[in-house]
Design a protein around this nucleic acid. Structure first.
Lengths: 139, 139
DNA sequence: CACCGTTCCTGGAATCATTCAAGTAAACGC
DNA sequence: GCGTTTACTTGAATGATTCCAGGAACGGTG
């Protein structure tokens, strides 16, 4: 999908920073704001911190990016949207991996009592160790 | 369970701040650090911010409290530990509710591919609206 | 029950990710 | 091209949490 077209499609103006941010997240899946900033500045050294945060929000609101916030770590962004997949987070280094949900509507995702809340989405985060941290013995 | 005994049991010294913090979390389930601080200061006006954070960490490490970090909100603490229950978070106000897991080991909680990660726990967060926010029309 | 090492608490400052504010600049439709 | 709208820039602020150094309390021991 053409990034420019994707932006226009959602009524977003096509700007250099937006294209670069979108592309950077594509190249670095699960990148945090700082990684995106650094990456974008490689080819567009003048972008401001706020521009990046701004763009990330705009793209997230437009449904082009998905925001992930693992407890205790800065927010990450990914381009894989629209499918029902979840994440594994490493207790050691915070690395993130994708996990496809084997069963779309597992029993556990239809809670028994909801305390009166209207439920819209279920979000699953698995916690464990990535191969690198396991090898390093980070128990 | 006697709080003092619980503390001693885990090799923690019994101090006034610890008892008050523990008790405050019991009275305000899903309280954040600030709420605990305010509440403890009602009866112990001199406690410092750091003492509260310190105690919350110590109790969490000792397994007496569980720390919950809903995306976009300060960390919360609860005394209900050891059982496999999850949470509903309100998109509007951030209120939290408990959700018992209908099926302890649902298929969805045993992911198909794990990107090489060793998985230890699965954490489920439901997002929706609490009764109050629904009534207020916070769409 | 006084002693002492360990553990804890206090006050103040620092950190990190993120956001706010105000002005300037660039994108799109005509 | 021209104006309106939206986006970006610079600079500073915010909020949750943590670091640091010194002083105080706990509680096992003699």
């Amino acid at each position: 999908m053409d990034p420019s077209a994707a932006l226009r499609e959602r009524g977003l103006r096509v700007t250099e920073p937006r294209l670069r941010v979108f592309e950077a997240v594509g190249r670095y899946p699960h990148a945090d704001a700082d990684t995106v900033l650094t990456e974008v500045r490689r080819t567009l050294p003048t972008v401001s911190v706020q521009a990046v945060y701004d763009v990330l929000h705009a793209l997230t609101d437009a449904g082009l990016l998905r925001r992930i916030e693992p407890a205790g770590h800065p927010a990450r962004y990914e381009r894989r949207v629209g499918d029902n997949h979840h994440h594994v987070a490493c207790r050691g280094c915070g690395a993130l991996g994708d996990v496809d949900c084997a069963v779309g509507h597992a029993p556990c995702l239809v809670p028994s009592s909801t305390s009166g809340f209207t439920i819209e989405t279920a979000e699953v985060t698995y916690w464990g160790l990535c191969p690198a941290c396991r090898a390093a013995g980070t128990t």
